[in-house]
């Protein structure tokens, strides 16, 4: 199997989805980048193919009818995507940075997410919003947010955060097949990460977590690029004789309660690593739910390791300190890790 980069896995998924269903189309800012530029159109070339180049090549292949460059009008093109979805198309708009949700939120918050319910079950919203998340690219406070938790708090929206190229492709194809709004969050710092990705069309079910490694002493539940942090923690603790189970949530809404709770029932200890800021975030939701539904299985407090309650800083050293790392996870969870060590 060939190894390809995360962003190429997404490009492949979009390509295959568009090939499979001609109602699938892309819209967003600069996703083609060459619309109405004569010298490019003459050669059927795109320019940017999205600001990270994720959609590169799709414009020339499918034309500007299906790869639509929008004006910088997040509010209206997101609403147009909702309008097109409810009238039968399968739009895949790209919100360049999840931080821009501020200018486009109404379409998802009060319109799309509620239509099926408000209309008594008559509407379908086959809409996948692709967006980028994540700190670590020196993009500072307005282009680095990890806002999946905000979307996840809205009934009527599913939220996916893939951690690797294989998952990215399979989850994106599932999302596009969904007759519901899915916000698909791509960590921009993972775009270059390579992994094995089958060339054929395949899907990974939404709402199902992946157990990345099994263990019996401690569960770590995490999301997106924090999965690699969790794996590093697991490797380091293994040397201390602690057997860590790592769960990649994959879907933040709905998150896989069954897998998480089963794991906690086995290990009795839970760390949740979430790149989002600490309050009202996914980690908090998981911690509260596990406390509620598996209280009698807990053998220690649930530890949440998150970003601090600050915007994302610019300076490299500060941004490094902002992101949860293996060191921080081990340090902040010492209370439940140390007694595992001592009792060996």
């Amino acid at each position: 199997m060939t190894k390809i980069a995360f962003m190429n896995a997404i490009n492949q998924a979009l390509d295959q989805a568009m090939e499979k269903d001609d109602k699938v189309f892309l819209m967003g800012e600069d996703i083609l980048g060459g619309t109405d530029i004569k010298h490019l159109e003459e050669k059927n070339e795109d320019s940017w193919g999205g600001c990270f180049g994720v959609t590169k090549g799709l414009g020339p292949k499918y034309g500007k009818k299906r790869v639509i460059d929008t004006p910088i009008s997040e509010q209206s093109y997101m609403g147009a995507a909702v309008g097109a979805a409810v009238t039968g198309l399968r739009p895949v708009p790209e919100l360049m940075f999840s931080d821009f949700i501020g200018v486009s939120f109404d379409s998802l918050l009060t319109q799309g997410s509620k239509m099926r319910y408000m209309f008594g079950g008559k509407a379908k919203l086959p809409l996948t919003v692709r967006t980028t998340i994540g700190a670590g690219a020196s993009a500072a406070a307005q282009h680095s947010g990890a806002y999946y938790g905000i979307f996840a708090s809205i009934p009527g929206i599913k939220v996916v955060v893939p951690s690797n190229p294989y998952d990215a492709k399979g989850l994106l194809l599932s999302a596009i097949e969904e007759d519901n709004i899915v916000v698909f969050c791509e960590d921009k710092t993972l775009y270059g990460v390579k992994g094995e990705v089958p060339e054929e069309y395949y899907t990974i079910p939404l709402g199902k977590a992946a157990v990345k490694r099994e263990g019996k002493d401690l569960s770590i539940v995490t999301i997106g690029k924090m999965v690699s942090v969790a794996m590093e923690v697991a490797d380091r603790l293994e040397k201390e004789g602690i057997d860590v189970e790592v769960i990649d949530l994959r879907t933040v809404a709905p998150w896989d309660e069954e897998t998480v709770i089963e794991s906690v029932k086995k290990t009795g200890r839970l760390i949740v690593i979430d790149e989002a800021q600490p309050h009202n975030n996914t980690a908090t939701d998981i911690a509260a739910t596990v406390t509620d539904k598996a209280f009698d299985y807990l053998d220690g407090p649930i530890k949440r390791v998150t970003a601090p309650n600050t915007p994302v800083p610019f300076a490299t050293n500060l941004e490094q300190a902002y992101l949860p790392t293996a060191d921080r996870v081990i340090e902040e969870s010492a209370e439940i890790i140390d007694d595992l060590k001592s009792s060996k």
């Binding site: 009698d296 299985y297 807990l298 220690g300 439940i336 007694d339 009792s343």
Partner: peptide
């Protein structure tokens, strides 16, 4: 901990007699 309490009850152990080695001297 909730789990330790549950296991103690199942085994008929009075956890007051158990020395805790967990964080904060907690019985695990």
């Amino acid at each position: 901990t909730p789990l330790a309490r549950k296991i103690a009850a199942e085994k008929g152990i009075d956890y007051a007699a158990v020395t805790g080695t967990g964080g904060n001297g907690r019985i695990t």
